[in-house]
């Protein structure tokens, strides 16, 4: 008995060390970036890398002044939040209808919606670019909101559908029998029960919109540029040096990473798309 116990403990120690080792290795680039953001440019490229140094906030000031961080951040917030809300408003009724009044075509419809995601963005770029040019939408937040909404719609419908499908049909029927109108049924029963699903779907789309780079780069470079495009402007040779780049990167990813940390449990559950019961 005692040998078995000690064997168990050894395996636990091995597993603990291995898991922490892998996690830290994967997280290392982000830690290192965070540290570099507080170095001077010379310290940043020192070989071997410095671990003890006097931290400076200089980089953040420079980034803020040189690139108008707030403007980009504001664009990111507006485009990702508005597109997410808009997407939820369109996707939720569709998902509700498919989950609660399924027809023979429901499965096919879902697959079709998903198949639109297989259409590569480059395939749509030129026509969209030209259409938006016609309507004077190039480099506007409106353009990005439209694109981000469309881009995330299939995933939203799909995720919400899997959430709604888990809500027992009979509960909605009970509400109907209790005399609830469609709106009351939605407001008092479906919304409270589906709020978790709506939240994690919204969060995922927020992350996807925030991080989107292809459309943001091609449609919104200057006025409507998001943080993703701000970062690209730093990649050009005449851009900032590595320490300032780290500071800018940190500022670009921090909001969404923090939100992600707080909601990761929900988010991961949603991402399984009903693959996990």
């Amino acid at each position: 008995m005692s040998t078995k116990k000690s064997k168990l403990t050894t395996s636990l120690i091995v597993r603990t060390i291995a898991a922490w080792g892998i996690a830290l290795m994967l997280f290392f680039p982000l830690i290192f970036m965070g540290i570099t953001a507080f170095k001077t440019e010379l310290q940043a490229i020192a070989v071997p890398s410095l671990w003890a140094f006097e931290p400076t906030l200089e980089n953040f000031h420079v980034v803020n002044e040189r690139s108008d961080y707030m403007q980009f951040a504001w664009n990111s917030v507006v485009t990702s939040v508005v597109s997410t809300v808009l997407g939820l408003l369109i996707a939720a009724p569709a998902a509700y209808s498919m989950a609660f009044s399924p027809t023979k075509g429901t499965n096919g419809l879902l697959l079709w919606m998903l198949s639109t995601k297989f259409m590569p963005a480059v395939g749509a770029l030129l026509p969209i670019y030209i259409i938006f040019q016609q309507f004077g939408l190039l480099d506007t937040k409106t353009a990005l909101v439209i694109i981000f909404t469309m881009m995330n719609l299939p995933i939203m419908v799909w995720m919400l559908y899997t959430y709604f499908k888990d809500i027992p049909h009979e509960i909605l029927e009970a509400a109907r029998m209790d005399g609830a109108s469609v709106w009351q049924e939605f407001r008092h029963v479906l919304l409270p029960l589906g709020i978790g699903g709506l939240a994690s779907t919204g969060l995922l789309c927020l992350v996807l919109a925030w991080n989107e780079a292809f459309w943001a780069l091609n449609l919104g470079a200057a006025e409507a540029g998001t943080l993703a495009t701000m970062m690209v402007s730093y990649s050009s040779p005449e851009g900032l040096f590595w320490a300032k780049l780290s500071a800018a990167s940190l500022m670009a990813i921090a909001p969404i990473v923090v939100i992600g940390w707080f909601s990761q449990k929900q988010l991961v559950q949603g991402l399984t798309f009903g693959a996990v019961k």
Binding site: P29, V207, L227, M231, V257
Partner: peptide, 28 residues
């Protein structure tokens, strides 16, 4: 720690690896 890279935007991801990890002189 494990989930964090998923939240990093592709452009930052790319710059991170280009400058910090893969730079032939001062890269990690």
């Amino acid at each position: 720690l494990l989930i964090s890279p998923f939240f990093v935007m592709p452009t930052v991801n790319a710059l991170l690896w280009k400058h910090m990890m893969m730079n032939p002189i001062y890269g990690v």
